[in-house]
Amino acid sequence: MLALVARRLLTAIPTLLGIILVSFVLMKLAPGGPFDGERPLAPETRAALQSAYGLDRPIWEQAWIYVSRLVQGDFGPSLVYRDFTVTELVAQGLPVSLTLGGLAVILAMLVGVSLGLLAAIRAGQATDKAIMMLATVATALPTFVTGPALALFLGLWLGLLLVSGRGDGVAWLIMPVTALALPVAGAIAKLTRAGLASVLKQDHIRTARARGLPESRILLRHGLRPSLVPVASYLGPAAAGLLTGAVVVETVFGLPGLGRYFVQGALNRDYPLVLGVVTIYAALIILFNLFADLIYGWLDPRMRES
C-alpha cells in the first residue's frame, strides 16, 4: 500500500515535467505575446520588457529557468497582473476553486449514489425509469446552460440568491456547486445503478440472502461496495474535471477562482500564469487518480494484489 503510494508519487514527477514542457512549447507556438496591446509598444520598451522577463533567451533556456524556479516553489511573476506573482494569484483562486469542486464532488456522490441505489432497488419500475431519465438529462445539460438557468430562476425571478459574486455567508455556493455537481451526479447515478444491477446477480448475494439478512443489509453491506468500482474509476478524472469545469461556472457566477485566471492568462499570453495553473491542474489530476486507485483496493480487496 505505502509502496504503491511512493511509487506512484515518484512516477508523477516525470509526468508533471513532461506536461509542463509540452504546455511550455505549445504556448510559445501560439501567435502573439504578453505585451501585445491595442497600442503597440515602442520597440525599446518592448525589448526592455522582453529582457526583464527573460523572454529574449532561447526557449530551452527559458524552460530550464522556469522549471528550476518551480522546484523552489516559485511560479514566477504574472506578466499581465504586474503587481502580483503567480503564487499570489493561485493562493487567491485555488481555495475558491477547491471549495466549489470539493463540495460539488461530495454533493454529486451523495445524490448520485443514493439515486442510483434507489433505481437499482426499484429496477424496472416507474421510480427507476424516472431517475434514469433525470440522470440522462442532468448528464446532457452543459453547465453553461444550467448555470444561467439557475441564476435566472433562483436569483432573478425568486430573488433568493445572489446572481453573481460572493456576498456574505455561504449562500453564494449553492448555485455554482449545484450547477457543477448536476452532470456528475447524473453519471454517478447511472454507474451506481448499472454496477449494483450486475453485483446483485452474483453468487455472494445469494449467500447473503440465504442467511436471511434483511434486503437493506444485503444491499448496503454485500452489494454496494463492489458496485462502486466503476464510480471510483469515473470519479478520479471527473473530480479533476470539476476543477477545470469550474472555468465556466466561475465565469457565469463571477467568482474569483482559478479557472478565471486560467482563461484570462491564456487570452493574454500570460505564460507563467497559464503554466502555473496547468501545473496545479496536472498535479491534482494525478493525485485524484491515485486516490481512485486507493479506493479500488478498499472497494474490492482483490484489486490490491495487482
Binding site: D203, R206, T207, H222, L299
Partner: peptide, 13 residues
Amino acid sequence: FVFQQPLTALTPH
C-alpha cells in the same frame, strides 16, 4: 445453505 461454487459464494470485500 452450502452452494456449489466456492470461488464466488463469499462476499469479496
